[in-house]
Simulated assay, not measured.
Amino acid sequence: MSYSYGKWTKYHIMKEDHTLVGYLPKTNILSNAAFWELIHENGTVVIKPSEGSQGYGVIQVSKVREEGYEIHSNRNKIICGKNDIEEFLDKEKYGRKLYLVQQKIPLATVEDCPFDIRVMVEREENSIEWRVTGKLSKVAKKGYFITNIAKAILTVEQALEKSTIKDIDVNLLNIKIENIALLTAYQLREYYQSSRVIGLDIA
């Protein structure tokens, strides 16, 4: 059986592991029903193409008041009503490819800019052993909600020191991050057997 490299496929593979499932934001194929279910549950959702990369086509939608919603794309924000959201969801571009709607993860911030941690996991050719080869924190540019457009690249320690996260054991957090990354690599390896490098964004 062949497997797609899209986010939707990877999401289901990772959900099969009882430990990883607790770290995954709830995700569904974009439809009007799935969108309204998630935004009613969480207040904010992210819409993204399953096959997308570099943050292209990623949009955040938030409920800001009764029947009022904010659409945040790149640095642009507009406020609209429920009918406008329905038209937005029905746009042709969302019918041409597979889009996902996902629970928004509230990111910690550095100087009011969200950040996440990119972890690289690699294995040698003909080896089944994975190892973490690098970790860096990406701080989003002012006005952006995704970190693909970064204003700063910091070490994990620098980001945590400057961040809104307080009273945290950095060593224990680093161990936890690496364990999650390695567990993900071993879970995906079963299906993507030729892969030797995996990059993960951990929030």
Rank of each mutant, 00 (worst) to 15 (best):
V46I: 15
N28S: 13
I105H: 05
S31G: 05
H12I: 07
M1E: 13
N42R: 14
E129V: 06
D112Q: 13
R118Y: 09
Y3N: 01
E125H: 07
V132Q: 02
I149K: 15
K93D: 11
D167N: 15
I149H: 13
H18C: 10
F88W: 07
K91I: 06
C113E: 11
E87I: 03
S195C: 04
E124Q: 14
E122V: 04
G199C: 11
G22T: 11
Y186G: 04
S2Q: 08
T147N: 05
V156R: 01
Y23D: 03
E178D: 15
K141L: 13
G57K: 07
D169I: 01
G6N: 15
K138H: 06
K7D: 04
V64E: 08
L188V: 01
K97Q: 12
V170K: 10
R189P: 00
A150Q: 14
I180G: 00
G43E: 09
S50M: 03
A181W: 00
A33F: 02
I198H: 10
Y69S: 09
Y23T: 02
D116N: 13
E67M: 06
T27F: 07
V110N: 00
L200S: 10
K82I: 07
I47Q: 01
E16W: 04
I71K: 09
K7A: 02
L89R: 07
I198E: 10
V58G: 03
I85F: 09
E125W: 05
H72E: 12
L98Q: 15
R65W: 08
K97H: 09
Q54K: 14
E92L: 13
K141G: 11
D201E: 09
E66A: 07
K176V: 08
